[in-house]
């Protein structure tokens, strides 16, 4: 008796496959995932190239812990904000941990983003064709710092309050536009309930939305252009060595082709380079 491949017999698996195929036919998810996951990247990518992904994961963690905090937080200055923070820290199960992770995560994210930027800068990874990747990244850095500024006030204790007064004063001291920026941030001439609501909404809705959008753009560029190769990858070093050898060979050829008197000086560059090696 010969066996014929008629696909899986299990009706559950069969219908699952059919469903996936149905969705893929219309949305391209399967193809898209494959394109995303199994695209080639240059060999020998470095550990330094994990920092962008790490920044993204920390942002994800901030989003999740932030959502949990928002379930308990009350943005009200007249008895609410401070008390809800107190409740989260002292009563809510694991509340202190979630708040601690969110607070430390903010500092860690700024450090990670800065290190990521330093690696991109040092490698020259912002050069053609990745200029716009860098521009979207620069906005991500600024947005991340704004996230820290607006989040710090929400705790509504003395330290948070005064730190924010100082930070807003820094912005407000800019010439011409400064006072307007100050008024916009404070939601009026003085700090008060409206300031807290404003910071809450900026911190919870405006900036996270902007960061998510810019991360989307950033990733689109990265996947489209491919992650850059370390400037000292084995392949690059080999190519550079070959080019060097070819150049030296050419110099030697040139030297041979020249008549006696000029021959000697013409070999100098090649000789000098050999000496250097």
């Amino acid at each position: 008796m010969t066996t014929k491949d008629i696909g899986p017999k299990n009706p559950v698996q069969k219908s699952a496959d059919a469903t996936i195929d149905y969705v893929d036919e219309r949305s391209g998810v399967k193809t898209g995932t494959r394109w995303f996951l199994f695209r080639n990247i240059p060999e020998g990518t470095s550990w330094f190239q994990t920092l962008g992904f790490t920044a993204m994961v920390v942002f994800g963690m901030q989003a999740i812990t932030g959502i949990i905090l928002a379930m308990y937080y009350v943005p009200d200055t007249r008895g609410g904000a401070y008390e809800s923070i107190q409740r989260i820290t002292e009563e809510v199960t694991w509340g202190w941990l979630v708040r601690g992770m969110h607070k430390w995560g903010a500092s860690v994210m700024i450090i990670v983003v800065f290190l990521h930027m330093a690696r991109v800068f040092i490698w020259g990874a912002y050069k053609y064709p990745r200029e716009l990747t860098w521009v979207t990244g620069a906005f991500l850095l600024l947005l991340t710092m704004f996230m820290g500024l607006t989040g710090y006030l929400l705790v509504w204790d003395q330290k948070a309050y005064w730190a924010t007064v100082v930070a807003v004063n820094i912005f407000a001291s800019a010439p011409i536009v400064g006072p307007y920026i100050g008024d916009i941030l404070r939601a009026g001439p003085e700090f008060g309930p409206a300031t807290l609501s404003r910071f809450y909404s900026i911190h919870m809705l405006v900036i996270p939305g902007a960061i998510a959008t810019f991360i989307g753009l950033h990733l689109y560029f990265i996947v489209r252009l491919g992650i850059s190769e370390p400037p000292w990858s084995k392949r690059r070093l080999r190519i550079e060595r070959d080019e060097e050898d070819a150049r030296r060979e050419a110099a030697r050829e040139r030297a041979k082709a020249l008549p006696g008197a000029v021959t000697y000086p013409a070999t100098w560059p090649a000789k000098a380079e050999e000496g250097v090696r």
Partner: peptide, 20 residues
Amino acid sequence: AKKTGKPFFPYAIFKDTIVA
């Protein structure tokens, strides 16, 4: 470089996951 390279999954994801 890309042609002689390796697939993103699992080579890059592996390192990314460890550091993150």
